[in-house]
Design a protein around this nucleic acid. Structure first.
Lengths: 160, 160
DNA sequence: TATTGTTATACTCTATAACTATA
DNA sequence: TATAGTTATAGAGTATAACAATA
């Protein structure tokens, strides 16, 4: 048996995500939200956030990059963005009822499409795939790279 | 039990590929090849290809996009690019011995890093993950999108 | 006329730096 | 002075169109 006759993970995963994004696009279009807009709605549906920078970090984006997205979402009434009375520099971010409705609708549609895909896999592989994916994506930022880099020699504490 | 309490596949996979690419970058740098350069070497190591357009298609790129990559690879002596005597428009593409060496070296290093990552997963999940990933990435282009879109009503043949 | 490879152009996405308003 | 948000600028990556050589 040659168990290692496989392509690199990135080589397999890269086209896969591109295809999955293609799948999501028409769903997002029906509700007039962008990919990042949907990502913001999903994050705020889990919990409100106190600053835009924290939100950007939470969804793996840049604080300058999500501003247009937030403008559009607010304009569409899907999120609220109110200055914090205690610190008027910050903007308190929360999802609205309408935003929640849009988010739930999009998620349900995407989930249905994903399930059709996953249904083509053997049950055991499907379970393992989802469990592995959940575990890997739950790693804190940078942790995956560190594990891949391997164990370091020398004392791990007090570098200077 | 609520088996569906998970995030969207793309939401989990997107940061994962970004992290995996981060992992590959330093490895590629040691051999002075780009991501697309490595992709080309991997494709040509499987089989020589008769035209640049076919190569581009094989690695999911655009024929105009890989030209600079091919220039660099040829310049570095990692591939050969000779006009086809039978059709002087076409360029016969093949990997060189040196290209093969570079490719093998990069793959071995990347594989070692990936294995450290996969070692953090339970064996059953790891197997399922790799099997599912292999199956999904083996789908012909566009097939995944079609499966996700679901069954169509109406006669599937002779659309016009 | 059609095709292969190439070059030129534009468009999208992202990253960096500079600016404002609050603290 | 430091921080949250914003705007402006530039860079990378990608897609589209036009072009030269060959068939």
């Amino acid at each position: 048996m040659e168990p290692d006759e496989r392509r690199d993970l990135a080589a397999m995963l890269y086209p896969l995500v591109r295809a999955l994004i293609e799948v999501e696009m028409p769903v997002l279009a029906t509700q007039d939200v962008s990919m990042w807009g949907y990502s913001v709605l999903a994050a705020l549906d889990r919990t409100p956030i106190r600053t835009q920078a924290a939100l950007a970090e939470a969804i793996g984006a840049d604080k300058t990059r999500i501003i247009g997205t937030l403008d559009a979402l607010q304009e569409a009434g899907l999120i609220s963005r109110t200055p914090d009375p205690d610190d008027r520099r910050a903007r308190l971010l929360a999802i609205t009822d309408e935003g929640r409705r849009v988010r739930r609708s999009v998620t349900a549609d995407i989930r249905a499409r994903e399930e059709r895909l996953l249904a083509t896999l053997p049950a055991a592989d499907r379970r393992g795939f989802l469990r592995a994916l959940t575990a890997l994506s739950a790693l804190p930022p940078g942790e995956l790279e560190e594990i891949a880099a391997g164990p370091v020699s020398g004392s791990p504490r007090s570098p200077a």
